[in-house]
Amino acid sequence: MTTSVATEAVAEAGVAELPVVADPGKLAPKDARDLSKLFFERLTVLEEGTREYQYARNTLIEMNASLVRYAAGRFRSRGDQMEDIVQVGMIGLIKAIDRFELSREVEFPTFAVPYIVGEIKRFFRDTSWAVHVPRRLQEARVELAKATEELSTRLGRTPTVRELAELMSLSEKEVIEARMASNGYNATSLDAALHSGEDDDAALADFIGAEDPAMELVENFQTLAPLLGQLDERDRCILHLRFVEELTQAQIGERLGVSQMHVSRLLTRILKRLRTGMLATH
């Protein structure tokens, strides 16, 4: 900090009650924390829009810019986007400054970092591809959108693949690939509402796929399993011979040494018992 010419300039601007920070961005972390408290205290009593308020707010942003660089470091693997990440992180820092209150009894860095990281993650959510697509196709998608708009305006209709390929100096196959890649940019939830103009909005899932009849079988099997466990060994053997080995009632009778009629009566009794049990469960 200095108290020379800069102090006089600040005093003339109406900010004499705040210290002048010559280079806020180069302050040590501890100095930045201590000064930030002073500036936040002053900010609470200043009228928004005044020169002193703007000075205090801007200085807080510069003093704490290192928090953005710290948070952005978590995403260093996206080196080609680092400049954008830092810019987005600064938005998070500004939001944190505008919402911070000393009464929270928490250090400003602890409060600010989640805002900064949240803003960066939101940036990735809004600009990243839902499905991984090769970079050449990502770039081709942008060119395809421009070419489609240009030709649509010029021709007064939707351009064909051949026309797009000629304008973009690509093969028709590459144009088709770029179109398919565009589908990977955004993913839509199956629960997304479709506004059809009717009273009730339908969900996307209502128009995709169909009910699987086998699902009811799964439920029935789950209900049937404990009922089968309650049968004695002979009854389970008869069911196995009839429905697993697919023997006729006469063949089952020969296996068990009883008549076909007796097997029929036994099957009727067993199946009635299982049916009654399942209906009672449902």
Rank of each mutant, 00 (worst) to 15 (best):
M1Y: 14
T2W: 03
V5G: 07
T7F: 07
T7Q: 14
A9E: 04
V15K: 01
V15W: 00
A16V: 05
E17H: 11
L18R: 07
D23V: 12
D23R: 05
D23S: 10
A28C: 03
A28M: 06
K30W: 02
L35H: 04
L35N: 04
K37I: 13
F40L: 02
E48T: 12
E48R: 14
E52Y: 00
E52N: 09
Q54M: 01
Y55W: 06
A56N: 02
A56E: 10
R57C: 05
R57F: 13
E62S: 08
M63H: 09
N64V: 07
A65E: 14
R69Y: 15
R69Q: 01
Y70E: 12
A71Y: 09
A72C: 00
S77C: 02
S77Q: 11
R78K: 01
M82E: 10
E83H: 07
I85A: 00
V86L: 05
I94C: 03
I94H: 06
K95L: 01
K95T: 05
K95E: 14
A96M: 09
F100G: 07
F100E: 06
R104P: 00
R104N: 06
E105W: 02
E105Y: 08
V106P: 11
T110N: 15
T110A: 15
A112Q: 09
V117Q: 09
G118Q: 08
G118N: 13
G118K: 07
E119D: 14
K121G: 11
K121H: 01
K121R: 15
D126V: 03
T127D: 14
W129M: 10
W129K: 06
A130Y: 15
A130T: 14
V131N: 07
R136V: 13
L137Q: 12
L137F: 13
A140R: 01
V142H: 09
T148E: 14
E149F: 06
T153H: 08
R157N: 12
R157F: 10
T158F: 04
P159V: 05
P159D: 04
L164P: 12
L164K: 03
A165D: 12
E166H: 03
M168Y: 07
S169Y: 07
S171R: 07
S171D: 15
E172C: 04
K173H: 15
E174T: 15
E177V: 11
R179N: 06
A181I: 07
A181K: 06
S182N: 07
S182E: 04
A187W: 01
S189F: 01
S189V: 08
L190H: 02
D191H: 00
D191Q: 10
A192H: 06
D200H: 10
L204A: 10
L204K: 03
D206P: 00
A210D: 14
E211G: 09
P213M: 05
P213S: 02
P213C: 08
A214W: 11
A214N: 12
V218N: 15
E219T: 07
F221W: 04
F221K: 15
D232L: 02
D235R: 09
I238P: 12
H240A: 04
L241T: 03
L247R: 09
L247M: 08
A250S: 01
I252M: 03
R255S: 11
V258T: 11
S259Q: 04
M261A: 11
M261V: 10
V263W: 11
S264N: 06
L267R: 13
T268Y: 01
K272A: 11
R275P: 04
A280H: 02
T281E: 13
